[in-house]
Design a protein around this nucleic acid. Structure first.
Length: 506
RNA sequence: GGGGCGGUAGCUCAGCCGGUCAGAGCAGCGGACUCAUAAUCCGUAGGUCGUGGGUUCAAGUCCCACCCGCCCUACCA
């Protein structure tokens, strides 16, 4: 049995969550549920990054206290995980969780003990949006290339981390695959960055510039720990690293896979800074890093700051959890960006969930009710193609998800739906029913095979569409009288004109 | 400027080390069927595989140049 620790990034909570973060949550959830289904020990963790300076600025802009502002937004992020059906084992809040501060302090001291932290005067242009310094040449007409804002001149003495010491070791770890970075383009990107030479990194801010928000540097209360140091640390602080808890031994040191999911925009922090911090502290590294692409909405970049994007909560309320999950898993490529539109969501839902699974379950249960009074026959099946699909699907799903290819994985599950529909057409149960007694065994065999296949389908669908999978299993479970009970539609057909909340699965 | 990744049927995309690789799904068209949510099943795609060269008996599949898009990185060789 393998033990897997999966994390999402901690989004900074300067605004409400958008669909892009939903993508990461759902991907992480699928991986976690999949491994659990296969019998592995899994821990899935998410949370919020509360300590970013831009949270402070956003709070000031909103005229709200930082504490209140951060708490409010953080709740929305935590709620989103629930809305999307994400079964997280743990949620950490970096500004509130007592585990976190203790862990960050311990991590800091460990690096200090390695001689990797030192004070240095620094002067530079700082973009709060990026939470990083920029060189003059990196700017576009004096503005941050990411945010279009003018970075402020900052001059102060900060703590620096000797990142420069770790380039060679990181390169080797990545090249040998001990630290796997996917997709390959991202891995190349990281290697390229490392090859360009690593410079020491500023890892603290003055208390004044941080507006007193954040985690104080151990033994230097005038400084606040750089928010990225703080945020990255969550992957171990949530495991009680600070208090040397058993969760740390179990899930970090003792796990077979330590997988970080993140957006391509924060790749460097996860693939360079974080592993370097761990090397310095003498801790094991993550084993895998998967950087997903970004979502656009109707070909426009999603931005919390700019307010473009769609509200995942509203989307789920209007169309249902599983349609939204299905879209995210089915249409977002393993590598590269994807464009979301409501039309695509609707088309995908109607084509596959409604006409595909929904209709299949509906026709199978209807036939069992109609021809066998709701009793599922136990007759041995004679459905080689259908059985082959059911047998092969799990392996194909496993392989696809090992490659972090959610599209391929969902396509693999679909083989069962297709094979089942084809089997119905080939055996023509309605014709068998008309022939009566002489064809009774054949009809029983067909129905039995179909119900069995649908049960397998439900099982394999579990990681992707947990709500639907449960509903299917329920429909295929006989009531106390030994009969399947007739129930309504699994999915309602969506229409652009009338999205409405009734679209949610029963 | 350097580097990376894309540009394949209307749409979304598969095509690893060159030789059934010219494909899948959706849309469209034709047909079948009626158990089912006008669902399902079968047939149908003649697309210069971004452009132009080159290597090879053979190239979306390798090489070069160029165009377009995105990304990383950097400025001068």
């Amino acid at each position: 049995m393998t033990r897997t620790y999966i994390t999402t990034t901690l989004p900074y909570v300067n605004a409400r969550p958008h669909l892009g973060f939903g993508l990461e949550l759902v991907q992480a959830d699928v991986l976690a549920r999949h491994r659990r289904l296969r019998g592995d020990e899994v821990r899935l963790q998410t949370g919020t990054d509360d300590n970013a300076l831009k949270n402070v600025l956003a709070a000031e802009a909103a005229g709200v206290g930082v504490r209140e502002f951060v708490d409010r937004n953080a709740e929305a992020f935590v709620a989103l995980a629930g809305t999307l059906g994400v079964a997280a084992d743990d949620v950490i809040r970096t500004s509130r969780d007592p585990r976190h501060r203790a862990g960050v302090e311990r991590l800091w001291r460990a690096c200090a003990a390695s001689g990797d932290l030192y004070r240095r005067h620094y002067e530079g242009l700082y973009c709060v949006g990026c939470e990083r310094f920029y060189a003059e040449e990196e700017l576009r007409e004096g503005r941050c290339p990411e945010h279009g804002t003018r970075p402020g001149l900052v001059a102060e003495e900060n703590w620096f981390f000797r990142l420069s010491r770790y380039g060679e070791r990181l390169r080797e770890l990545i090249e040998t695959g001990r630290l796997r970075i996917e997709p390959a383009e991202r891995r190349n990107e990281v290697l390229g960055f490392i090859a360009g030479g690593l410079e020491d990194l500023s890892v603290s801010r003055s208390q004044a510039r941080a507006r007193g928000w954040g985690i104080p540097v151990p033994d230097d209360p005038d400084q606040v720990v750089y928010v990225w140091w703080d945020a990255l640390g969550n992957y171990v602080t949530a495991l009680d690293f600070g208090t040397d808890g058993e969760a740390y031994e179990r899930w970090w040191t003792g796990s077979d896979r330590r997988l970080h999911l993140l957006g391509k925009d924060v790749l460097r922090f996860h693939a360079v800074y974080w592993p370097a911090m761990l090397l310095s502290a003498g801790l094991p590294l993550p084993t895998e890093i998967y950087a997903h692409g970004h979502l656009t909405v109707a070909n426009r970049k999603i931005s919390k700051s700019a307010g473009t994007g769609v509200d995942p909560e509203a989307l789920v309320a209007a169309y249902g959890v599983d349609p939204v999950r299905w879209w995210l898993l089915r249409e977002v490529p393993r590598s590269g960006d994807a464009d979301f539109t409501v039309d695509r969501l609707i088309a995908r839902t109607n084509d596959e969930l409604v006409n595909g699974v929904g209709n299949l379950i509906s026709r199978v249960t209807a036939m069992v009710a109609k021809y066998r009074d709701g009793r599922v026959p136990e007759t041995p099946a004679d459905a080689p193609a259908l059985e082959a699909a059911c047998r092969q699907t799990p392996d194909l799903v496993d392989a696809a998800l090992a490659d972090l290819d959610f599209r391929r994985a969902t396509a693999a599950v679909w083989a069962i739906v297709d094979a089942a529909n084809r089997h119905i057409d080939e055996t023509r149960p309605w014709a068998l029913a008309r022939r009566g007694a002489p064809a009774a065994t054949a009809l029983d065999a067909t129905l039995a095979a179909l119900v069995r296949a649908c049960r397998t389908l439900a099982r394999e669908l579990t990681p992707f569409l947990p709500t639907t999978a449960t509903a299917i299993a329920h429909r295929l479970t006989p009531a106390s009288d030994g009969r399947l009970r007739p129930q309504g539609h699994l999915f309602r057909r969506l229409s652009p004109a009338q999205p409405a909340s009734e679209a949610a699965p029963v």
